[in-house]
Design a protein around this nucleic acid. Structure first.
Lengths: 213, 213
DNA sequence: TCTTAATTCAAACGTCTGTTTCAAACATAC
DNA sequence: GTATGTTTGAAACAGACGTTTGAATTAAGA
């Protein structure tokens, strides 16, 4: 068993258990048991539980943000001065998410669940960590949205961006529960892609709503 | 110190600490310390930590749902057969929230934070508890929304209701953080009422968006 | 006032937590 | 093969946790 094998086995187990139970509710012992590695391996390779949590996020978010960056670069090179619509911007984001979680169906749900947890657990440590770590990309997306919604006052745009983030994070992070309820109520299947396809026009119409001020 | 005094002191402390840190991250010792009561009082009066958590929610949600129920009753008696718009339905809900948290500014934030946590912590125990406990009222609101959006297919309405719930729960439960960011970025004050006023048209436009199917 | 029940209190219980220790096993280079 | 640095392993650590106990205190009714 090579070094990186142990590390990634820990990350795999931590990722799924964190998404399933939350951070405080997941013990290092349950992680190392599922990963079939020694308990001490976590502190040896990551230093602490806190650092492990950050490492789990970094493994998710770094390729995600890189994907957005590069696809935006490609687009801007091909169509300079093109102004994207909100829906098109969201498409870039959702495509990046799909690419990152490619192959493993479960990873999309995990990704979103972790995003939701980052905002709701641990007194905001994770939120601050992510904000500092990926400031550049979020700035860039924010500026694109600003260009896409010139009619909005900056203050109102700020809030609407967070309304969008909230609707997306909440829905997608509870995707599994909600889909179960849906399939029970309607006796019909419903894929993640279906939900995302319905989410887009909701968000688009929301940001373009007549001002409430 | 009478019986109910100890009980409500525990509930007060638990409420604010849960909202601040989450459930697993809040110990009974920190709750009883802040409440200035004995540690054993929690298990004596509530039986367990789990029951205490449910009691905290019940104290919040019972008057909240009763407020909605009664105000809807009044309205339907005065204007039978009146079909409410989505915005009007949301007004009923938000007014009920305001009434319940009347007096204490902090309670609105706590209320929402708890709602967000209920969906994101503890493997969904709380979500199920709330769903079972307050099934009647949520059904009633759902039916009103159905009447308000006859053009939507039932499946799409299901998801849009949850998109709304998500945007509201996420935004309002992170209200304190978001307001801090806002006031830093814009050097301008921003009240809870301002945010809610901006949230309404966003949600209204979202549910009325052209179908994405 | 005496009795009885309800409540508070300090202390302890057993269990689980993240972390540390240090020897054993491993890999790598000379 | 020996020496060196890296990784694993079993065990133990100290501390925090929710819960229980049983005696002390308070409140209430007859």
């Amino acid at each position: 068993m090579t070094h990186s094998d142990t590390v990634s086995r820990i990350l795999d187990s931590a990722e799924s258990l964190f998404a399933e139970r939350g951070f405080a509710e997941t013990s290092l012992r349950s992680i190392t048991a599922q990963a079939e590695v020694n308990l001490a391996a976590v502190n040896y390779h990551f230093g602490s539980k806190k650092s492990l949590i950050q490492a789990v996020f970094a493994r998710f978010f770094t390729p995600f943000y890189q994907m957005i960056e590069s696809s935006l670069d490609v687009h801007e090179k091909r169509y300079p001065d093109d102004i994207l619509s909100v829906e098109e911007i969201l498409k870039f984001v959702s495509r990046a998410i799909s690419k990152v979680s490619e192959g493993d169906r479960r990873r999309l749900a995990i990704f979103m669940r972790l995003l939701g947890l980052a905002y709701n657990q641990g007194q905001g440590h994770l939120r601050k960590f992510l904000q500092n770590e990926y400031r550049a990309v979020s700035r860039r997306v924010m500026e694109l949205i600003t260009k896409a919604t010139p009619e909005l006052k900056a203050e109102e745009r700020f809030w609407r961006i967070h309304f969008m983030l909230g609707a997306a994070a909440f829905t997608l992070s509870n995707m599994e529960h909600l889909r179960a309820i849906f399939e029970h109520d309607f006796n019909a299947p419903c894929t993640e892609e279906d939900v995302i396809a319905m989410l887009m026009p909701f968000l688009g119409a929301g940001v373009r709503a007549k001002s409430g001020l």
